[in-house]
Nucleic acid binder design. Structure first.
Length: 214
DNA sequence: ATATCGATTATCT
DNA sequence: GATAATCGATATG
């Protein structure tokens, strides 16, 4: 077996609290099958959304047609359209019947970088251009051609899917935790998880963070 | 470096 | 009718 093999994560991985899934997703790989190519990128920043008890979560007001994936079986893609412009990707957590999810906020591209640039409609001239490919929830969806029509409710635990999450053996060192970005309700809770020092992490640099040994 | 603003639409009040 | 888990551009220190 080649060292570069990527193994899908089992469904049980996602059948836990979003906080636990968030920590453990850092360093894992998002895989996309697109036009016969494989795009891969490492997960370097995520946020936990806790379900009906979390005022900032889409599930806060109970089950609706839009957020029903969050209440379904774990390990599925919940994709929503925001600000009339952008898609955002989550993976459903908790056992079926209970809401919860993890928002993907930033990735570090590993392979298929030219395809990502094409999908974003940008050219790569500088290191900054590379960072902007997948740094931010809207950007990473554009780079991976993720849309609600095509990918909402996709099963992210099967390597047969066109979108899935795997483990390539990478083990992150320290992780950092901070408040979530871009929300107005329950804005103070430390539910954003990222790899400190990774240049692909979104938002202002050196945002208040509590480092933790993993 | 931070601040502010316009774009543009699904969803809910 | 208001809001939103954002981005890119522009303005200002």
């Amino acid at each position: 077996m080649p060292v570069s093999a990527i193994q899908p994560l089992p469904r049980e991985f996602f059948a836990r609290k979003p906080q636990r899934v968030s920590r453990d997703l850092l360093g894992k790989v998002l895989v996309r099958k697109l036009n016969g190519q494989r795009l891969t990128a490492r997960i370097v920043e995520v946020e936990a959304y806790l379900g009906e008890a979390d005022p900032a979560a889409h599930a806060a007001a109970g089950r609706t047609p839009r957020n029903s994936v969050l209440f379904g079986p774990p390990g599925h893609a919940y994709i929503y359209f925001i600000y009339g412009n952008h898609y955002c990707l989550n993976v459903s957590c908790e056992p079926e019947g209970r809401a919860g999810g993890v928002l993907f906020r930033a990735l570090e591209p590993l392979s298929g970088i030219e395809e990502m640039a094409k999908a974003r409609g940008v050219e790569l001239h500088s290191a900054k251009d590379l960072v902007r490919l997948t740094s931010g929830p809207g950007r990473l969806c554009a780079a991976f051609c993720i849309t609600r029509d095509a990918d909402n409710n996709a099963d992210l635990t099967s390597s047969k899917s066109t979108l899935w999450i795997g483990d390539d053996g990478f083990r992150s060192g320290k992780i950092a935790i901070s408040p979530r970005i871009g929300i107005t309700k329950a804005a103070e809770h430390p539910l954003r998880y990222f790899l400190p020092g990774n240049p692909f992490v979104s938002g202002p640099k050196f945002r208040a963070a509590l480092d933790k040994q993993v």
